[in-house]
Amino acid sequence: MTKVTIDGKELEAAENSTILEAAEKLGISIPTLCHLKGVSPGSVCRICVVEVEKVARLVPSCSYPVSEGMVVKTESRRIREARRAVLELILANHAQKCQSCNMKGGQCEFMKLSKEYWVEGLPVCNECKLSPQACYLNRGVLCLGPITQLGCDGICITHGYSCQGCRGPIKHVEEGIKIIERYGFKVGDVLWAARKYSGGSRYFDELSRSLEK
């Protein structure tokens, strides 16, 4: 048995267990993405990083074994920043086609974490409760979900109204506009609709001028 302290709570953990397993016993949850129970850990996503006293770098809790007298912290500003950076990197590589993804509406673990860690640039679509088939775009109604910052839980859509973009444009508007275009809408129409709330954003303004040319 190995004695460890996690977030101030003490525990006799089984030898060779990981920090993640020990934390679980204490009821402390640490986010994971690449980790699968029972499979030897790959430690590639690094979302599960924690602070260990006397270890300078952050360590991945899903593979790091406990040792006698170890003191662990699972929440701190440094950890938060690191986790957010991890999520942002994944997002940069992820084709965001939430509108046609079956995991949308709150089932996507990655999106859940992205929201929790305030990652910018996620579209309303991934909160939207409609199935990909029922999506407004699929039914020929213009919806600004793909280019609009989430956070409202897609409330308008739940109330029978397509997203009007009131929360402002996401970082990668161009990508979002391309998605909407694929459903047969014209750029001009999208810009016209989006200008209602986003006309004041300089970035958006420049984009719409260049696209309209």
């Binding site: 409330i155 308008c156 739940t158 109330h159 029978g160 109204y161 009131c166």
Partner: peptide, 10 residues
């Protein structure tokens, strides 16, 4: 639908 910035009334 919302306590402010209502949606449903049209």
């Amino acid at each position: 639908g919302r306590p402010i910035q209502l949606i449903d009334a049209v």
